[in-house]
Amino acid sequence: MLPPWLRVLPGRTPSATVALVLGRAPVLVDAGSGRVASRAAIDALLADAGLRPGDLTAVLLTHAHDDHVGGVGRLAREHGVPVALHAADLDHRCDRAFLAFDVPPFPVDRVLADGDVLAAGDRELHVVHVGGQTPGAVVYWEPVDRIALTGDLVQDGDVAWARFHEPGGVAAMAAAVHRVAALGPRIVVPGHGPVVTDVPAAIARSLDRYAAWEHDLPAAARHAGRRAVVHTLVHAPRDAAALARLPWARHVAATVGLPVEGAVDELVAGLAARGIVRERDGLLHATVPAEPADPAG
């Protein structure tokens, strides 16, 4: 299914998928969460290809959310790997004002723009600026084998959450998917979920969902809120009051028309009914398969 020049490390919460492009100029696309388990998995991916981290010629970031960029600082600082990120995400690292996640600062050696062409392995990756979930989100497009590395776009069975709290946020996600569709990809490697081979069906599902959300912003808010709850709890168990203090909770509450505490309780109850969240010793825990937490201390 995948060509021999491309290897994929499936994401395991809280890490997004990482792709390795092989050849004379090997590059990594995205860098996972930065947890010890994520770093070890990336090192194993490289070792299986006969590479060490210092052999990479670049880390190409699709966008600046923590599950995609958390591991990039280690590669840059310890191994001198250059980092590439779109200009519009330079001041948007990890979406602090919405998700409240942070990572240590990391250098950006190449500031990307739409239309840039990057050496990757023995191939060329074209930078396609799509925006949507972050201002600088990009797709990396390989036109010979028609493979798109899409960050959070065009998933199999789900869709990327939309910036429901910003004017035009849902429409921006639909526009980003349309830009991917215009490329005519044969295979999509998204940041979450399996590699997509029935690309037209995945694109149609995404566009249908965003079209519905344009007329139902509370549904978009609840979708984003559920993902924020799980992502937060994977990092560390918390009680509902702690969740209600996070910035995304205020935006969800305002959109669904509930007090913040009520909106969080609704999200948690829905996830608990599906077995995704459970309470233990007064704290909420995510039950999804996840990378082991880093050792204390």
Results as ranks from 00 to 15, higher is better:
residue 52 R to G: 10
residue 55 D to S: 11
residue 56 L to K: 00
residue 58 A to M: 09
residue 59 V to E: 00
residue 59 V to Y: 00
residue 62 T to E: 01
residue 62 T to V: 12
residue 62 T to F: 08
residue 64 A to P: 02
residue 64 A to I: 04
residue 64 A to Y: 02
residue 65 H to T: 14
residue 66 D to N: 13
residue 68 H to M: 15
residue 70 G to R: 11
residue 71 G to P: 01
residue 72 V to W: 03
residue 73 G to M: 08
residue 74 R to E: 13
residue 74 R to S: 10
residue 77 R to I: 11
residue 77 R to S: 12
residue 79 H to R: 05
residue 80 G to I: 05
residue 81 V to W: 00
residue 83 V to C: 06
residue 84 A to E: 03
residue 85 L to G: 03
residue 88 A to D: 15
residue 89 D to T: 06
residue 89 D to V: 09
residue 90 L to C: 06
residue 90 L to P: 04
residue 91 D to I: 00
residue 91 D to N: 12
residue 91 D to M: 05
residue 93 R to K: 14
residue 95 D to I: 13
residue 95 D to H: 15
residue 96 R to L: 14
residue 97 A to V: 10
residue 98 F to D: 00
residue 99 L to K: 15
residue 100 A to Y: 08
residue 101 F to N: 15
residue 102 D to K: 10
residue 102 D to C: 11
residue 104 P to K: 04
residue 105 P to S: 11
residue 106 F to T: 05
residue 106 F to I: 05
residue 108 V to K: 03
residue 110 R to H: 12
residue 112 L to Y: 07
residue 113 A to T: 14
residue 114 D to M: 06
residue 116 D to L: 06
residue 117 V to Q: 11
residue 119 A to K: 07
residue 119 A to D: 15
residue 122 D to R: 07
residue 123 R to S: 12
residue 124 E to R: 15
residue 126 H to D: 10
residue 128 V to D: 04
residue 128 V to L: 13
residue 128 V to I: 14
residue 131 G to A: 10
residue 131 G to T: 06
residue 131 G to F: 08
residue 131 G to Q: 00
residue 132 G to L: 01
residue 133 Q to G: 13
residue 134 T to C: 02
residue 134 T to D: 11
residue 134 T to Y: 04
residue 134 T to R: 11
residue 136 G to K: 00
residue 144 V to H: 14
residue 146 R to A: 15
residue 148 A to K: 09
residue 148 A to I: 01
residue 149 L to G: 05
residue 149 L to A: 09
residue 151 G to R: 06
residue 152 D to M: 12
residue 153 L to M: 04
residue 154 V to C: 09
residue 158 D to C: 05
residue 159 V to H: 09
residue 159 V to R: 03
residue 159 V to D: 04
residue 160 A to M: 14
residue 161 W to P: 07
residue 162 A to N: 03
residue 164 F to I: 05
residue 165 H to P: 08
residue 166 E to L: 15
residue 169 G to M: 04
residue 170 V to A: 02
residue 172 A to I: 10
residue 173 M to W: 01
residue 173 M to R: 14
residue 173 M to D: 06
residue 173 M to C: 13
residue 174 A to C: 08
residue 175 A to Q: 13
residue 176 A to Y: 01
residue 177 V to C: 05
residue 178 H to M: 09
